[in-house]
Nucleic acid binder design. Structure first.
Lengths: 237, 237
DNA sequence: CGTCCCTTTGATTTATGTCAAATTCGGTGG
DNA sequence: CCACCGAATTTGACATAAATCAAAGGGACG
């Protein structure tokens, strides 16, 4: 297992493109404790790798530096529900912070880079660094708000509205709105999107087809080009 | 406006049946500051009263001592979505903690009693009282988990499954499971339930009727008696 | 070049929304 | 206490969006 002193780790962190949102950013001036591997840095994970398993003891929060991850919950019957997707700059595992074990699994959708922060480390440093706490609360808050918006969209939308909300969410979370044309790279399968939105994969396919016919988007397998953001925004309400 | 010193307020708090989950419980030994009205105690609200309005500046977190509250979000088009219901011992307004204004409205469903904690008060005391912070994070966490479960239920359930999940959630959150028979008092209208579950009010009515015919429950207007909790649990998966 | 899996497309079924009407409930005032 | 009114709920008939079932097309990868 990796064994770095914090100073080395944090040195590397300063060059991370996502440092602004990362916990590491809040630890500047932290007294070093090179003995325990509380911060695992730049773990490179292949596609399909479990970051953590549902039921496993919770040990870390993860900061996603590159790639993408799906968060999936399975009930007793084996039904599976994708709860959320995560993108660079986001924190994975937050929803489990006050439980002893993970309540869902996190799986990479593509080759990804994550940094792991141990819970004792986080908790100890929250007391010392108010900014760290604030950062965590903000991520927490974003998680709740995202959930609320998902609920609204899924509850009251027909399929085409749900997919519209999904696309807009991707644009927003990946900061794509300022590019022309807006290009989305879907790292998840149609089945994943369908599961996430509570639709059948066939319906996702049909709605994308319908969007394309109406000139709203240009869809080519995993690449989506948004031609008319205003119209898409209007569609979802 | 009410003007009490904290010692008086906290005195009253110790007799509150919900003190265990309340922030006030974490403030024992707090130095008093009787000047600012940071803690408004036992506000009695009639049915239909707004605790806060969507768009209003966020000033307080609220602890619900008695009654029940619905949390509702309206988009630009005027579509409304009930995000959650709150019951005694729960905290209202948490999802807005890191925004400047409320992103949804909270409305009492019946005569209710709430206590208001100002944000500066909360924030200042979080630094002094680790238990307070822990408490807030636990409430936060519960909020996220509830959201996840709602998503799962609503996404992958047919109407009867959604309503089953809803009833089980009420039983759980109101600690009704240990009573025989289990009696639920629905403080919200059928239309509210329908909106929350993403169904039509007629469907809610029909599903309740179906439950009753199958002997699962006994429904009499706002009162629901659960006859077969195991069967209901099995139904929702 | 062939296999497998993902995706798309088409035909059919079904759950649930919508519209409309009947019934019940809850509150108000005589 | 009872009669009335409006609102909420239930019930019924019908329309429709989306699931399901089935099969064909297209990429990725060995």
């Amino acid at each position: 297992m990796l064994q770095f002193g914090y100073h080395q780790l944090l040195q590397g962190c300063r060059e991370c493109g996502k440092i602004k949102r990362c916990f590491a950013n809040d630890l500047v001036g932290n007294p070093l404790d090179p003995v325990t591997p509380n911060l695992l840095h730049d773990l490179i994970q292949p596609k399909g790798r479990y970051i953590y398993y549902q039921g496993e003891d919770i040990k870390n929060l993860f900061f996603l530096k590159a790639g993408s991850v799906k968060n999936i919950y399975a009930n007793n019957q084996g039904d599976q529900q994708i709860i959320n997707f995560y993108f660079p700059g986001e924190v994975i595992g937050l929803a489990h912070l006050y439980h002893s074990y993970y309540l869902s699994s996190a799986i990479t959708l593509e080759k990804s880079i994550v940094c792991a922060f141990s819970l004792p480390f986080i908790q100890a440093n929250c007391e010392k660094f108010p900014n760290l706490l604030k950062n965590i609360l903000e991520h927490f808050n974003a998680e709740i708000l995202h959930c609320h918006e998902s609920l609204l969209a899924i509850n009251h939308g027909i399929a085409s509205k749900r997919l519209g909300v999904f696309l807009l969410d991707l644009i927003h979370r990946q900061n794509l709105a300022h590019n022309r044309p807006i290009l989305i790279r879907l790292t998840m399968s149609r089945a994943d999107i369908a599961n996430y939105l509570g639709l059948a994969p066939e319906t996702v396919s049909r709605v994308l087809g319908k969007y394309e016919k109406s000139g709203l988007i240009l869809a080519n397998k995993k690449k989506i080009q948004i031609n008319n953001l205003n119209k898409l925004t209007a569609l979802v309400g």
